[in-house]
Design a protein around this nucleic acid. Structure first.
Lengths: 138, 138
DNA sequence: TTAAATGCAAATCTTTTGCACTGGC
DNA sequence: GCCAGTGCAAAAGATTTGCATTTAA
């Protein structure tokens, strides 16, 4: 399957119209079938580097639209900016503190034996786990 | 111990000069010995309500200083703003989505049986666990 | 006395919005 | 042709910074 096919399928699965800009961003995100973690800024830079004409505002709006459609998951890690993850399953993240980079952590290596109970009348929407990494001392 | 004593001790333990503003904020934070979760804005409003004259910028700078000194822990939850937690031990949080409120979750009810290994040359600085709560459907 | 802390306004950074224009369907 | 999508600039928040003034030690 070509990146173009993948992007088209991804968008149509969410009933989003495949405009030029959305296709370009979708290809950058999932064109090779790999999971990715981007910020609005990093995706914008990448698109520009590829010669795609997209405005930063549209990158923001598009990421928001993809999120609302369930195609992406927003991950908040350091207050300053949001990361968007193409892997929408509940899974832990590594946050590389010195590089401000976010990656998936192997979900099968995380085992939560017990979780606090949700207070009366509420339920657990999700459990966000971020494992912060730093250079080993010495 | 009075709130004043507690605040004084808290500040001096971190070698921070007990200025009027810092004392007012410290008292608001740990004066009663309870743990608290505040945003810069909420702490600022609280201080104003108590009749304390502090500028918002100073609240920000002071929270940052408390954090750097290890007196507070910054928790990022929804990208928009930072929460500051007077409980600096590694512990899970509840995030009440409809109220944008952060509270401690009972640490003894969370049991992580296995954690992903840190990649070569890195170590785990901390594990942030945020349990998102929403109103139960129906 | 003097270095640290404060207050204010202005700057910065990320993200959203208003509105006219463009382009899928 | 219609309405969703886009681009741009401007707005909106949250937070930081520069600099003159104040204050704790």
């Amino acid at each position: 399957m070509t990146p173009n096919d993948r992007a088209l399928e991804w968008l149509s699965g969410a009933k989003l119209r495949p405009t030029r800009q959305r296709m370009a961003l979708a290809e950058a995100l999932i064109g090779d079938g790999q999971h990715r973690h981007v910020t609005a800024e990093s995706l914008f830079e990448h698109a520009k580097g590829q010669g795609n004409k997209v405005s930063l505002a549209t990158v923001y709006n598009t990421l928001r639209a993809f999120c609302d459609a369930g195609l992406l998951q927003e991950v908040t890690v350091d207050g300053a900016r949001s990361y968007f993850d193409t892997n929408t399953h509940d899974h832990p993240h590594f946050y590389w503190e010195d590089e401000s980079r976010l990656t998936d952590a192997p979900a099968e290596q995380l085992r939560i034996a017990q979780l606090p109970q949700a207070p009366e009348g509420l339920e657990i929407a999700s459990v966000d786990v971020v494992i912060r990494l730093r250079k080993k001392a010495g």
